[in-house]
Amino acid sequence: MKTLLELALVLAAAAALLSVYRLIKGPEAFSRAVALDVLTLITMPMMAGLALWVRRSIYLDVALVYAVLSFLGVMALARYADRGV
């Protein structure tokens, strides 16, 4: 069971590396903002999976903070383009 969880985390980390490609390549800053959003979406379940792996529920609070606040950075970048920041 633990091996299955570890394999899932490895796959998620590989997905994170794939979105790093978009982070490096993106011709505009907003492509990179999309990559940041995807990375947040991948890292949040990785933190939850880590909480399951060490069997501590307190690690879930960190994932919860990212779940609630992750869209603020992307929204600020979008508002920057509208001259709203």
């Binding site: 307190i58 609070d61 960190v62 903070v65 606040l69 603020l72 600020a76 508002r79």
Partner: peptide, 25 residues
Amino acid sequence: LTPGGGFQGGAVVASGVLLLLLADR
């Protein structure tokens, strides 16, 4: 009881206020 505390909670509250400021300049 849980990880976190005053500084982290205060930063999250300020992020909530930031949400209002971003929506309406």
